[in-house]
Amino acid sequence: MNVFRLVGDLSHLLAIIILLLKIWKTRSCAGVSGKSQILFSLVFITRYLDLFTNFISVYNSVMKIIYLVTSLGTVYLMYFKFKATYDSNHDTFRIEFLVVPVGGLSFLVNHDFTPLEILWTFSIYLESVAILPQLFMISKTGEAETITSHYLFALGSYRALYIVNWVYRYYTEGFFDLIAIVAGCVQTILYCDFFYLYITKVLKGKQLKLPA
């Protein structure tokens, strides 16, 4: 473990908590893409199938459980408890256009052609594009609540910090996982224009409005 990955994980956890609290406190999921949340739940489910068979550390197991429970909890709040506030008219990204190519690619490019490894690879590729429905929804509505932009900043920062972690691990222990690195770079690049807007607008107290 290194500080970059630890801060990255905490940033990821913070993002998930911010979103959960936003929905729970305001009793509304306006402006939040339920499709992205479904994809994130799918990412965690397919990635953590080894939760009970491959013990790494208490921290690792506890975080996996927290991610699984909170992401499924968010999907539950959005599609059941606060379904009336779910903005399905703007959450229209066709996620089959993500799941199918990602599924195909995970069969073609992976570390090992075994079910567990292919599902892990699927999870890594899917995570890199899972935010697209959310970014698409914001581009359609043209704006995002400030709390939602904080969520996105924390979520985008997590994988950016993981890239620093991979550089660090390459130079200190010679470890590198090309699949995770390439997918992580794609994932972080997708946030670039949001990061620009967040830093130039939200941090100056303005609301996040995308140029129409």
Binding site: R5, N110, I179
Partner: peptide, 10 residues
């Protein structure tokens, strides 16, 4: 197939 790596990250 790429070199198998240990899965110790989240």
């Amino acid at each position: 197939k790429l070199a198998a790596v240990k899965k110790d990250e989240l």
